[in-house]
């Protein structure tokens, strides 16, 4: 099985606070890896290392490596704009931009320099179809994206991410603000998408991790407790803590 990313002895600090301690785990290509653990365990911090979101804020520091095609993406010399356009991110709350549905999807493409209207139209339609949103919005592509429902907005954000054809999509508790039906649509979508992309998903929802992920990593106070195939994590965990966490006895 191919690793797309390899996290190696990763430490991360918010100023003087150690938020990640010696994390080592692979991210398998075209699979869904779920990051689980109690609040404050560092799973979102780890997720935001992959697209270097931490670089937006002062006094954040990495040590260790995240390797992608043999290159350490935490290297100072890495072009963040290129890195981020290969690592899509979907946030907890939907983040539609204050513009039309079409312009939302085309935003990343325009950043990449796509100007041809026919190409844009084609790519926007494909992204919307791939995110199962096309039928619902095809008649209101010019309407403000803020008018869509929460679930639709979240799929719009996924479509916006897909449009730039990333290698990885990072989901940061992306269904926690949605109703069960919208959540199910997004879960189905994630499973469908892994044919094309690699997915890393932070989730508080144990059932969700069990339903959709292929691999699961349990984290606790900044460290990795256990990483394994999801089935193994949920049915025959090696650590007592994992067993307790997935059965809901702590966390």
């Amino acid at each position: 099985m191919e690793n797309l990313l390899m996290v190696q002895n990763l430490f991360f600090y918010y100023g003087d606070n150690e938020a990640l301690r010696d994390v080592t785990l692979p991210i398998r290509k075209n699979k869904i890896t779920a990051l689980i653990g109690p609040s404050g365990c560092g799973k979102t911090t780890l997720l935001r290392c992959f697209n270097r979101m931490h670089d937006l804020y002062p006094n954040n520091r990495y040590s260790g490596e995240i390797l992608m095609d043999g290159q350490n993406i935490l290297d100072k010399k890495v072009d963040l704009i290129r890195l981020r356009s290969s690592m899509g991110m979907v946030f907890q709350k939907p983040t539609p931009f204050p513009m039309s549905v079409f312009d939302n999807i085309a935003y990343g493409l325009k950043l990449k320099g796509v100007r041809n209207m026919n190409v844009l139209k084609e790519r926007v339609e494909k992204a919307l179809r791939d995110s199962a949103l096309w039928d619902e919005v095809k008649d209101r592509l010019n309407h403000n994206a803020g008018g869509l429902s929460g679930g639709q907005q979240q799929r719009l954000v996924i479509a916006r991410t897909l449009a730039v054809e990333p290698q990885v999509i990072l989901f940061d508790e992306s269904t926690s603000a949605l109703d069960p039906l919208s959540t199910q649509k997004i879960e189905d979508l994630m499973v469908e998408l892994k044919k094309e992309v690699t997915i890393v998903a932070v989730t508080h929802n144990m059932q969700q991790a069990a339903r959709i992920s292929d691999f699961t990593a349990l984290m606790y106070i900044g460290g990795l407790v256990e990483y394994d195939e999801t089935e193994a994590i949920f049915t025959r965990p090696k650590h007592a803590m994992t067993e307790q966490y997935v059965s809901g006895r702590f966390g």
């Binding site: 937006l56 704009i81 690592m87």
Partner: peptide, 21 residues
């Protein structure tokens, strides 16, 4: 801030995030 982060996550440079978002 999440709106800015969403634009950064698509690979937008800061001035574009400011102007267009």
């Amino acid at each position: 801030w999440s709106l800015r982060e969403a634009a950064f996550a698509l690979g937008a440079p800061y001035y574009k995030v400011i102007v267009s978002i």
